[in-house]
Structures are given as structure tokens and as C-alpha cells.
Design a binder for these strands. Structure first.
Length: 701
RNA sequence: GGACGACUAGCUCAGUGGUAGAGCGUCUCAUUGACAUUGAGAAGGUCGUUGGUUCAAUCCCAACGUCGUCCACCA
């Protein structure tokens, strides 16, 4: 053994040994009566290389997996990748733009195909990176969200929802990104604060305040609060839209804040969510003046085809000249922007598919209340509950190509929707016309990933997987996708299978830089996990991501911290170097040797104590505690104290001392393995063990 | 405006109803026998503020302050 542990020499070879040994597959047999342990890996985007956040979840999940595997439970860590509709198409379009092309240069089929190929090329990178990190997942069960057998599951879920009346299509106001060319759900809207002009416009008998003068052509009413005595006489009369002089009624609505602006609100149902609601309750017509590309339509000739934002200035100018602006003020407010490209979202009315969330949310809330699903950290249960109580109907349609196309076919003759579980219908079920057109939209990515736990297990090449592993044991993922993913998996999982998709929810925090600052490309503080592995070893990175901070909290990660753990891996290496150079005949004895020497008894007692603490901490998902406990024992109790004190005795070939050394090393390696799998496995092998450590038994407490 | 957190040693973070811990950093000492990617030791905190509960609070409760994250239809 070299005096230094060189991770670069061993990690690849060790991973291959594990893989070849079949240890990654769950061992299901009639003789194994232990209940299975299963984690479905949050599927990374098929398109992207891994970032440090992925490394954190691998460190956490793989530690749990390895621990349970060593306990002898049939253990499954199921990997996969996500097609990440919007994300991927966005990245791909940027790539196209560099080549002076756009997605409109291709027909649907071609575009899908070239994105598919592009993604395939990148998926291999992601897989090999997971291996580099030491993820002990079962590659034979790997699933991609666009695998045909997954799509089949997604289709049948959609059909069931439709048949049960939980899916509807309709003209609704949605957050539409004119740059991305698609609508989004409630969750994909970011808010930014901005200063804008607010114009007080002369509507004849009343004055209204608006930040969006370009939409006046779409006005269908002016609303005031029913309690607002200033205007009560005007309700029922007609106001007049400036410039075009079209008359619209003055109505009343509780949604109007009488203290804002003039207390009178122009109602533009086609371009504002509140207005849409007021329009619906008052049965007002819809007039749209901005199209899906963000350009003006159905307005006075001179504005047509202008971008809405340009039209705003132009209309304001014209109003000013006509003397129809009473005053202009500045207003500080928040507006919705696209989470993806940060461009201002245009509320637009368009046909979308929605899921009725309320009945699904209700059952999920019950499951949480009944502890069918448990949150490792209470705070996230509160947040999940808040969301489940506040979710609106979920828009699951996206106007993009990259995704699972919605299996909805509209009859060209009677306009009835035909929903199938994938197959194109031969004729309309209602009027039997053979002429049908499929909806061009695709599903929101979260709709398919929301089915991930049962979809992956049902689509598994191993028929018994669903029955055996569902509900899965733990859902471990970042808290940032709690509303997007976790609660949707709960809702859809419960709906389809009647059971929660996982029994425990463990959410982890973000990885921040050494000063606790959020990592971003623009700040230049990104930490590349693979670079860290090359430099310090996968063990050091994994330990650095767990050690010194609670799983559920954000952690600060510095190279110093990772390097500190590399020193630790070297420490164990040298402990092993010392122990393994002792007379190996005592290794055999170590299993049954009963120590009489005080030092030996003490370290064995401490080892027992440590085993107990590590096990308990792992069971409670307190990974940092477990890691710190074993770290402290190995370094400061075993090495600093015990080994230093027993050198004289080992020189004299003291059987008790040497047996104890072998025994403590053996157990320490087992306890540390979930956190630092490579170095422990390597030493384990050097110690002459025939069986691999990955499948060795967890120490008895 | 609402929700959820955080506030503990210079830094990054654990922790507990009975007057506090780790890693890094700092300082002192040790150098050929497992490891200098080391060992021995030291300094360093009125545990955000103010009240309350208690025999006892950093830990429980209330208010406040600061910071963070998420949500929100003020046009």
C-alpha cells in the first residue's frame, strides 16, 4: 500500500466490480423476508450534464440505499432521465439560433427527431457522471420519460382523468410567453418588480387608471366597487373608450379595490386574469387585441402588427395628443415573467387542457394527515399543505413540440374531442366522421414526471416490480421542486394506484458556495462536481456534501471542505495500512476474540456506541449526524487515541491488541461505506475479504 | 400583503430545559518508524433584542429587529 490514497487509481475499477457483481439489482427471493427498500431517483434532465445539486442528491440517496442494502433488504435505486420539455427545447433553440436557424424552419416531425438525437448524445454523459459519483443504481431498470412504455402509462392516466371528468379543455386566460410561444401553469411564473407609468384615462363619465393603454381596444366594461359611493350612480350607464369612442357599460364588482387609482377598473377579459374572472361572472364578451406572438390585432389600423410594448407607447402618445390623459404617475408593482427567459408574460385567452386539482389535492391532504406519507422535516409538511390548499386547476398543455403529444383528437365535423389512450381513433365516437385532427399540444413535463414512481415500476422489464416496490420507501429531492413535482406525484399516484407513491419524503436544501451565496453561472461561483471528483475523489465530495449540515437545509460547500474529507479518506487508508501490516492470523481471531485489556475493551465499547448512533441517525435521515459520528470515531478515537496507545503492544505481537485492531477496522469500514464507498471498498478488498463490502452485512448493534 | 425559515466561536454550521460543540482559520509545541493530506495543546461565544413561563432557558411562549426563501389579481 502506498502512503497516500490515490482515488484516481481505484474508483473506476471499483465501480465496475460493483456493477459486474450484480449488487445493484435487488435480490428478491422467498428466503429474504425483509421488506424491500426503494428510491426512485429524481430523473435529471436528459440533456444536461450534472451540477453540484445532483451530486448532493446522489450522496444522500446512495448513502441510504447502501445502508439498506447492507441491512439485507431487497434494495432498488431506480435511475432515469427527464425529457424536460421547455428546458430542452429552449436550450436547443438557442443552439439553432447560433446556426441562424429557428424551430420554424422544421416541420414538427423533423424538429422532434433532431432534438431526440441531440438529447440522446447527451444522456450518455449524464449516466457516466452518475457512475463517477458512485451511484449504486440498477441500470437495467433505467427509464427515460419518452420511452414508449412510459408514454403508454401517461396516456392511460390522461384517459382515466378525462373519463372521470377530471380533465377539461377550455378557453381560459393563461400565462402565455410570446417568446417561448407557449402557455404555462401557475407555477412557472416568476415575479419581478418594476416601475411603470400608470395613465389616468378619460372614459367620458368616469376616469380609470391603467398601466396598459394598448389594451383599451379590448375593453368591454368599466368596473367599480359596489361599496364605492362615488360611483354608485354611474353603474348601469355607459362609459366611452377613448380614441375609438366605443361605449361600454359601468358595472360593479367586489374584486375592484376602491382605493387604487380612481377606484374604477377597465375590464379587459382577454388580457388580464382578474378582468377575465369579472368578465365570466358578468357574461361579458371577449375581445383579443394581442396575438400569440405578442403583436397587436383587432385594433385601429395604425397599431396592427406592432409589438404590444411598442403599441403601449404609441397609444399613450396618441391619447396625450388627444388630451385624453388626465395625469400620468409612476407606479412600483410586480409583473409576471416567464421563468425561463424572463420576458414579460402576456395573459391570453386560449384553448388549453386543465386538470381539476381540488379532488386530487383533497385526497393528498388526507394521506398527509393520516401519516400515510411522512415528511422527514416538519417545515416541508406545512409548505406542502399550504400548496395543496392553494393550487388552482393545472394547465397541462404546452404549445411546444418536445414532449408527449396529447392524445386528443378533434372531430372536424362535430368538433367533439375524442380522447384515447394513445391510438388514433378511426372515426369520431359521436358523429362517426373519419376526419379527425390531433391536438398539436404536448403535456407539461411535470404531468409525466408526476407519474414517475408508478410509471417506472409499471413499465419495468421486471414484471413484479410494481407490486414489490410500490409504494416506494423514500422520495428524496430538492425542496425547490416540492410544489412542481412532489405534490403532483402524490396527487397522481394516489389517484391512479389508490396508494401514496412513497412513504417518506426527504427534501434537501440547495448547495451554496463557501460564503453561503447561491450558486449561479453569472456569479461565477459554480462548483463542477466532476471536477471535484477528479481532484479530491468521489468519496471526499460525497462526504463534503453530507458532513456539517442538515439534509433539509442549504449547505455551504467549499473546496477546503471537500479537501478536508480527502484528508479523511487518506487517514482511513493509513489506518488500514497500519492495521493490515500486523500479523494477519489475528484477523481470523478478531471475530471471536473477547478483549480483556482495558484499552481494547474501551475502544470496542466506543465502537458499539458509535454503531448504535450511526444506525439510529441513518434511520432518522440525520445523515450529517451519522457521518460526523463515524468521522469522529475513526479519526479521533480509533486513530488518535487507540492506535497511538497500542503501538508498543503491537510491536510485541499482543494478540488482544491486534485482534482488536482488525475488528475495529472491519466495523469502521462497514459503517463508513454508505458515505465513502470507494475507499472503504478498496481497503476491504486489500484486507482479504472475498465478498464485496457493498453487500456485506451492516454491523449488529 | 401572506407563509415558512434563519439569527450559536473570525468563517461555515451542529446541538441541548440545568450556565455550549464540530470543521476550517488563528496561536504554541512536536519531525525518519500508519499518515505532515500528521500528532499534542491553547486562545476564542453575556447562543439577535426585550419581556414571560420555570427552581432553572441559548433551547418553551410572546413581541420586536435583521436577513433569507417561497407565494400574492392592487389594474
Amino acid at each position: 500500500m502506498n502512503p497516500q490514497y490515490d482515488h484516481t487509481k481505484f474508483e473506476k475499477e471499483i465501480y465496475k466490480k460493483w456493477e459486474d457483481s450484480g449488487a445493484f439489482s435487488p435480490h428478491i427471493s422467498n428466503s429474504n423476508l425483509k421488506s424491500p427498500f426503494c428510491i426512485i431517483m429524481p430523473p435529471p434532465n436528459a440533456n444536461d450534464p450534472l451540477h453540484i445539486g445532483h451530486a448532493r442528491f446522489v450522496a444522500i440517496e446512495d448513502a441510504l440505499i447502501r445502508y439498506h442494502r447492507m441491512k439485507g433488504e431487497p434494495t432498488l435505486f431506480l435511475p432515469g432521465s427527464d425529457h424536460a420539455g421547455i428546458e430542452t427545447q429552449y436550450v436547443f433553440e438557442k443552439k439553432l439560433a447560433k446556426e441562424d436557424k429557428s424551430r420554424f424552419d422544421y416541420d414538427r416531425g423533423t424538429l422532434y427527431k433532431i432534438i431526440w438525437n441531440y438529447v440522446q448524445d447527451n444522456t450518455g454523459v449524464m449516466k457516466s457522471q452518475l457512475k463517477t459519483l458512485g451511484a449504486s443504481c440498477d441500470w437495467s431498470r433505467f427509464k427515460f420519460t419518452l420511452d414508449p412504455e412510459i408514454i403508454k402509462v401517461v396516456y392511460s392516466t390522461f384517459k382515466k382523468l378525462y373519463d372521470d371528468g377530471l380533465v377539461y379543455s377550455g378557453e381560459r386566460i393563461v400565462n402565455f410567453c410570446t417568446k417561448c410561444g407557449t402557455a404555462y401553469s401557475q407555477l412557472e411564473v416568476d415575479a419581478v418588480e418594476r416601475d411603470d407609468n400608470i395613465y389616468y384615462l378619460d372614459y367620458g363619465i368616469i376616469t380609470i387608471a391603467t398601466t396598459r393603454p394598448e389594451t383599451i381596444f379590448a375593453d368591454v366594461a368599466v368596473a367599480v366597487n359596489p361599496k364605492d359611493t362615488r360611483y354608485s350612480k354611474l353603474v348601469g350607464l355607459n362609459a366611452k373608450i377613448p380614441l375609438i369612442n366605443r361605449e361600454v357599460p359601468v358595472i360593479s364588482s367586489n374584486l375592484v379595490d376602491k382605493d387604487f387609482g380612481t377606484g374604477a377598473l377597465k375590464i379587459t377579459p382577454a388580457h388580464d386574469a382578474v378582468d377575465f374572472e369579472i368578465g365570466q361572472t358578468n357574461k361579458l364578451p371577449l375581445i383579443s387585441v394581442i396575438d400569440e406572438k405578442g403583436r397587436m390585432t383587432s385594433s385601429p389600423e395604425k397599431y396592427i402588427d406592432m409589438k404590444a410594448e411598442d403599441a403601449r407607447e404609441e397609444v399613450a402618445k396618441d391619447l396625450q395628443e388627444a388630451g385624453l390623459i388626465k395625469k400620468i404617475e409612476k407606479i412600483h408593482h410586480t409583473i409576471g415573467v416567464c421563468y425561463r427567459d424572463k420576458s414579460v408574460l402576456e395573459p391570453r385567452v386560449s384553448k388549453q387542457w386543465f386538470i381539476k386539482v381540488e379532488p386530487l389535492a383533497k385526497k393528498t391532504l388526507e394521506a398527509i394527515k393520516n401519516k400515510e406519507v411522512k415528511f422527514a422535516a416538519k417545515k416541508y409538511e406545512k409548505i406542502a399543505t399550504w400548496w395543496l390548499n392553494n393550487l388552482k386547476d393545472w394547465n397541462i398543455s404546452r404549445q411546444i413540440v418536445w414532449g408527449i403529444r396529447i392524445p386528443a383528437y378533434r372531430c372536424d365535423k362535430c368538433l367533439e374531442w375524442n380522447i384515447t389512450d394513445g391510438e388514433a381513433p378511426k372515426e369520431c365516437f359521436k358523429c362517426h366522421s373519419p376526419s379527425l385532427s390531433q391536438d398539436p399540444d404536448t403535456f407539461d413535463t411535470w404531468f409525466s414526471s408526476g407519474q414517475w414512481p408508478f410509471a417506472t415500476l409499471k413499465a419495468s422489464p421486471f414484471k413484479e416490480d410494481f407490486e414489490k416496490f410500490y409504494p416506494t420507501s423514500v422520495m428524496e429531492t430538492g425542496y425547490d421542486i416540492l410544489p412542481f413535482w412532489v405534490i403532483r406525484m402524490l396527487m397522481l399516484g394516489i389517484y391512479i394506484t389508490g396508494k401514496v407513491p412513497f412513504e417518506n419524503i426527504l427534501l434537501h436544501g440547495l448547495v451554496r458556495d463557501k460564503d453561503g451565496i447561491k450558486i449561479s453561472k453569472s456569479k461565477g461561483n459554480v462548483i463542477n462536481p466532476i471536477e471535484m471528483v477528479d481532484k479530491y475523489g468521489a468519496d471526499a465530495l460525497r462526504m463534503g456534501l453530507i458532513w456539517g449540515g442538515l439534509v433539509e437545509n442549504d449547505i455551504s460547500l467549499s473546496e477546503e471542505k471537500i479537501n478536508g474529507q480527502r484528508k479523511f479518506s487518506n487517514k482511513i487508508w493509513n489506518i488500514a495500512r497500519f492495521v493490515l501490516t500486523q500479523n494477519s492470523q489475528y484477523k481470523v481471531l478478531s471475530t471471536k476474540y473477547i478483549a480483556k485489556n482495558e484499552d481494547d475493551k474501551k475502544i470496542l465499547e466506543e465502537l458499539k456506541e458509535t454503531t448504535k448512533k450511526v444506525t439510529k441517525a441513518l434511520d432518522k435521515y440525520r445523515l450529517n449526524e451519522a457521518a460526523e459520528e463515524i468521522y469522529h470515531f475513526i479519526w479521533h478515537k480509533f486513530a488518535d487515541k487507540y492506535i497511538e496507545n497500542c503501538k508498543l503492544r503491537t510491536k510485541n505481537s499482543d494478540a488482544s491488541a491486534i485482534s482488536t485492531l482488525y475488528k475495529v477496522l472491519d466495523t469502521s469500514l462497514r459503517l463508513l461505506h454508505p458515505f465513502m464507498p470507494f475507499v472503504t471498498e478498496k481497503i476491504w478488498g486489500l484486507a482479504g475479504n472475498k465478498k464485496l463490502l457493498i453487500t456485506a452485512d451492516w454491523p449488529a448493534q
